[in-house]
Design a protein around this nucleic acid. Structure first.
Lengths: 323, 323
DNA sequence: CTGAAAGCGCTAACAG
DNA sequence: CTGTTAGCGCTTTCAG
């Protein structure tokens, strides 16, 4: 910047004003500065600009479970779009639901002085460092912090589960099994509660496998579904996440035993599989956008109240609920 | 840091040494510093640390087409994993294949002083600012820069297309149609060339729609497929990207006219649709990892030669090539 | 092993 | 409208 100033024959500060888009600069000086910048190939250093207190880094941190999972990357994409429109850029990182890694990422992003944080807390979680000690505003997404009491954006997991179970039960099915990832995950736990409630409400017992602790992968879900098909009287599946749905479908394909199914989370080719797979669709884009908007608002307005936004899910019936 | 030094009764520099993990510190001072840090809740400021020349920001920029597309998010995830292992964090941004937006993102990341850049250049592209004027090392991923001559990691798009067309043709099919996104995209163009070559080699003419310019979305692909089904004698589809494959499948489902098909890009539920959809699988993880490794190498070693890595694709036959 | 001084690239406060 | 001065939080000489 000094070189630019010299070359343009103005002071450092005038260059600073110019690159910051301040308007009170004589047009002629502006032109001289522009020329000097072009000749010197000058690029401003945003990192240097941001170290002064009160100055922003224009970086937003995002911690999700796994960028390779389309559900989280869709959340990330929605948040990115929103944040980018305000001139921010996203620092994305995957915790892989590992607590140590999550802690490390939080520190890393705080030390990088991101202006705000959007966080999907890891399964299990822990009470310390949740929304405190962050020194920049944070919004939780998809799952609330364990300690509660923080801004967050969630889907109506329980209600979504209820709607799915209702649909199955109303179709005359009774032995509806719940299949999914571990109950350590908030969203899964909520869906499980929705399942239990609705089953109880209709006076039927939940269908379960002895010693079953949840499937972390599609393969494990498939194995679980096969056992359900062979060891129980299962009449229908409620698969509480994407991978579980695909695993169950694979299991049915492999065993040749078809059962009605409704899955949580919509997916790209749900309408193309076996006449159409019914799902509970989460408002993924809205969720990502809402979290970003909430964060942006928090970053500007001091006074904003804590809020919990719960977005409704939508039951998309494609036929598999009764086939 | 000053406060910490004061409280610990040491100099600023000693604290700096401590937080940088330098070993030449008296154990006792180290303890006093640690205590002071804890009491004060001190967090170091990485942005401030990085402004000194020769210091790194530990930020890697990644520009892709669209984070919401599972193909790109898988690339991003692979790169992230690799880069994170070396203590870097990824700044991810979507160009949406828009040239103006792409240019803006490049500047933004350069001005943020990322230590390196992994770039999927936008469709169409342009000759200026490709790998030059970047002031940090860059590696191109999925598509080479228009100007050529830069490190990049690609899939063997043409070879992959050839293998798919061979499989179709060897099955006795002749009228194989090519359906996909616009030829402005490098990868699509390559696949198109592979298609043309192989068709010519077998002495058959390409099947095409008059005035067709490519499908940007699944819906457009579906519409194109329907027209092909109704207006031509198409006997099989080669769909040159994910969205085109899904669109074609939808078209066949809707019209009830089944045709053999092979798609470029594997997808989550390819084995669950209609007995299994055959695809040309790209080594997505390897590509993301390779780009990250190449960049990291470039960032440390000065002398590294420019290299182009072309990773092989794999033809995964699931039955749809002859059904 | 430790510290004092200088300065990275930039912006804020205050003159002119 | 423009420039001067100070200083953000840190690291790097270079002396002890």
């Amino acid at each position: 910047m000094n070189h630019v100033a010299e070359r343009a024959g103005v002071s450092l500060k005038t260059v600073s004003r110019y690159v910051n888009g301040e308007t009170n600069i004589a047009p002629e000086l502006g032109e001289r500065i522009a020329a000097a910048i072009a000749e010197l190939g000058y690029r401003r250093n945003l990192a240097a600009a941001s170290i002064r207190p009160g100055q922003a880094s224009r970086l937003i941190g995002l911690i999700i479970s796994d960028l390779a999972n389309p559900y989280y990357s869709a959340l990330a994409a929605a948040a990115e779009q929103e944040v980018m429109a305000q001139g921010y850029v996203l620092v994305v990182s995957s915790s892989t639901d590992d607590i140590a890694r999550y802690d490390h990422l939080v520190s890393r992003l705080v030390e990088q002085r991101v202006d705000g944080l959007i966080i999907v807390p890891p399964r299990g979680g822990h009470d310390r460092i949740d929304s405190d000690s962050l020194l920049s505003p944070a919004v939780f997404l998809d799952r609330p912090p364990l300690s509660g009491g923080a801004d967050c954006v969630l889907a109506d997991n329980r209600g979504g589960a209820r709607s799915a179970i209702e649909a199955l039960l109303n179709g005359g099915l009774r032995q509806v099994a719940f299949l999914s990832d571990s109950l350590e995950v908030f969203t899964i736990r909520e869906r499980w509660l929705g399942y239990l409630e609705t089953m109880a409400c209709h006076g039927v017992d939940p269908v379960s496998l002895p010693n079953w602790t949840g499937a972390h992968s599609r393969e494990e879900a498939k194995a679980g579904a096969i056992r359900l098909l062979q060891e129980t009287e299962v009449e229908a599946f409620f698969t509480a996440n994407n991978r579980a749905t695909l695993g169950a479908l694979e299991a049915m394909q492999e065993t040749g035993i078809q059962r009605p199914i409704i899955g949580f989370d919509d997916f790209e080719s749900a309408s193309l599989i076996g006449g159409g797979i019914s799902v509970v669709r989460q408002p993924v884009e809205e969720m990502g956008r809402a979290a970003a908007q909430m964060l942006l608002a928090k970053m500007t307005r001091e006074t904003s109240q804590q809020q919990q936004v719960v977005l409704p899910t939508e039951l998309v019936l494609r036929g598999s609920e009764a086939r």
